[in-house]
Amino acid sequence: MNRKTKRILLRTVTYILCIIIAAFALLPFLWGLSTSLKDNVEVYSLNPTLIPKNITFENYKAVFHDTSMMHYFRNSVVIALVSTLVTIFVSLFAAYGFSRYRFPGRAPLLTSILFIRVLPRVCLLVPFYVILANMRLVNTIPGLVLVYLIVGMPLTVWLLKGYIDAIPIEVEEAAFVDGCGPLKSLFLVVVPMVAPALAAVGMFAFILAWNEFLFPLLLASDESSRTLSVGLAFYIDETGIQWGQMMAASILMSLPAICVFSYAQKYIIKGMSEGAVKG
């Protein structure tokens, strides 16, 4: 009897917490969604309602018809995908190398990865601009990918390294005995076991490239390479904020990320059931 009531209690508490947190996460979003469906005059109404009095899709239409926005969208998609893949691979190799091998300069190098995060952004803006200009990568996709790689590395390398550290060397030894080289061992043994962290790192890299504002503003200010996050800033001008269109564009912009994440989440949660540690 006691255990049963305990479980019911636990369940109820879980549900209540769930609802509160979900509401906290969702409500501002809902407000944004509601705003995107309102016309200019109703947006500022003094009796705001969650469900608009006159639902209008003119904001969404305006965004779709805006060829520049579609162009920025495509840029953002390409940059985010490329950046995610590049970051995952480079960070995985780096994390594996730092974790499994000892070589001179290991500790200083590992710590120096962190510096890019410690240095204030403003100390990076002009030097980055100069470096990219010298490499002729200003206003290009590879240029931004490089910047996102560097900015993301402190988290991605350190996180993956921590995860790989926790995997006992015995697991790989079995593979070595079978004649696997380090690369094979990495991909066939280690990767399945770090899948959750890898997926998390991938999502982080994706969001970084998707939402970042200051770097693309400065380093990819050309119309042809502009990203969606910068494009959103165009809805704010000196006459005020065009809420309706900005929210419509922002919600449309969030959809791909949400899809990607719902998919990637499965890897995070399921990952551990395969390739479990033996013994």
């Binding site: 091998y101 030097p127 470096i131 490089l146 560097i150 590395m153």
Partner: peptide
């Protein structure tokens, strides 16, 4: 091997971090 694995990331670091 260790050096090879960390090479891409260190190259990126050398490019972008040293100068700032």
């Amino acid at each position: 091997f260790g050096i090879l694995f960390i090479l891409p990331s260190v190259a990126a670091l050398a490019c972008m971090v040293v100068y700032p």
